[in-house]
Design a protein around this nucleic acid. Structure first.
Lengths: 201, 201
DNA sequence: AAAAAACCTTAAGGTAGATTAAGGAAATCT
DNA sequence: AGATTTCCTTAATCTACCTTAAGGTTTTTT
């Protein structure tokens, strides 16, 4: 018997997130609670750097992160932005325990909830619901990536920018255009030109 | 007690594939066998078309498939080739039961093994090993996609072509250059130029 | 509050890759 | 075996996007 449903907890946003898929009972919650660690992350602080193995599933409670790769020329390429109620993790590195090629960096002061691998495996074995939940998380990330790849092939920079504005209207107010340009795969100068063309049209 | 380990079966390549990750015992195999259907697929035949929900996990025993999207202008964009001992499935459509945006088409006469959703869920529940196996399948597909996206941002067409040749040396002998060009995100004419530049260098 | 850093814009000139068109070689179908 | 479709290549022209450079603005740090 636990009191978790009566006591507001740091992990409430995470429970709510899981319950978008499947309701959790008191047992599930009591299993989850001691395995989740809250961390405050400063602006420009990294939660993953190239060469490190990604040790955690990171759930963003509030704040905003960018996930990017640095190419041989030193240029950053944003592959994803992560805001409230989503996961900032290098799924490949985490599961295969390979050194990551990616950086995950806070763009704002942020709060995250971390689950490490041992605890995640424990949850899989003792609460099959989490198993399903994390499968769905990966599936969704997979679909997001696939759409992004398809778009990068078949759409122009302007089309991709308009699609971005439509899909993430709030984000475009929240982060600098340099970062959006990197996400779109174009230079900040060219994005500036696209924005000018949009206004003057 | 089953004799499955003595009798060669149509699903042997699939069992071998799973055992690259985790050994299966006789019980596991006896669960799998009746849930797998073999199909012969003709060249140019589709196993998935845009608008249909992807109903199966398709394991390629032999032959070769392309997974592609057709854009608004009617142009095909190959997102993946699938050959022996790999899966040709729209994972997003299968799990979410959404109409797919993709086509999966045989490029050669092929043989596949199909598992439908009901049977897959049955296996998940009754043999947790398969659960883990299919998670790993998705993870690997995810990593493949992520690398492809990163490359499409930071590498030139020539670099991407060379990387393709290195990663899939056999495939480049097996499929037409038009298809490789579509995979690389360039026109066949430009690929032809790249190939000429390679030789004359 | 001042200094430093990051960000945004404009514009000129350059390049990777698209488009169009057309002829020849392979593969596939009948 | 012949007919048809697909595939490959070359070359000229065109365009989306990059590069470099520079000045002004906003945000962040001290």
């Amino acid at each position: 018997m636990t009191l978790s449903h009566d006591i507001p907890s740091k992990i409430d946003p995470l429970i709510k997130h899981f319950e978008d898929y499947l309701p959790l009972d008191e047992f599930d919650k009591s299993m989850l609670l001691p395995r989740v660690v809250e961390r405050k992350i400063k602006r420009r602080q990294f939660i993953l750097q190239e060469g490190d193995v990604c040790q955690h599933y990171n759930f963003v409670v509030h704040g905003c992160f960018k996930i990017y790769k640095v190419d041989e020329k030193g240029v950053e390429h944003n592959i994803q932005f992560v805001v409230e109620n989503d996961w900032a993790t290098d799924i490949g590195s985490f599961h295969a325990e390979n050194p990551s090629e990616l950086y995950i960096e806070a763009m704002e002061p942020s709060t995250i909830l971390q689950i490490n691998k041992t605890d995640l495996l424990f949850l899989y074995v003792n609460c099959p619901k989490f198993d399903r939940n994390f499968r769905v998380i990966i599936e969704n990330k997979f679909i997001e990536l696939q759409n992004r790849l398809l778009q990068s092939f078949s759409a122009s920079a302007m089309e991709r920018y308009l699609a971005f504005l439509q899909q993430y209207p709030a984000l475009s107010q929240r982060i600098p255009n340099t970062q959006i340009a990197s996400y779109l795969g174009i230079t900040p100068e060219f994005l500036s030109k696209l924005r000018k063309d949009l206004v003057s049209k």
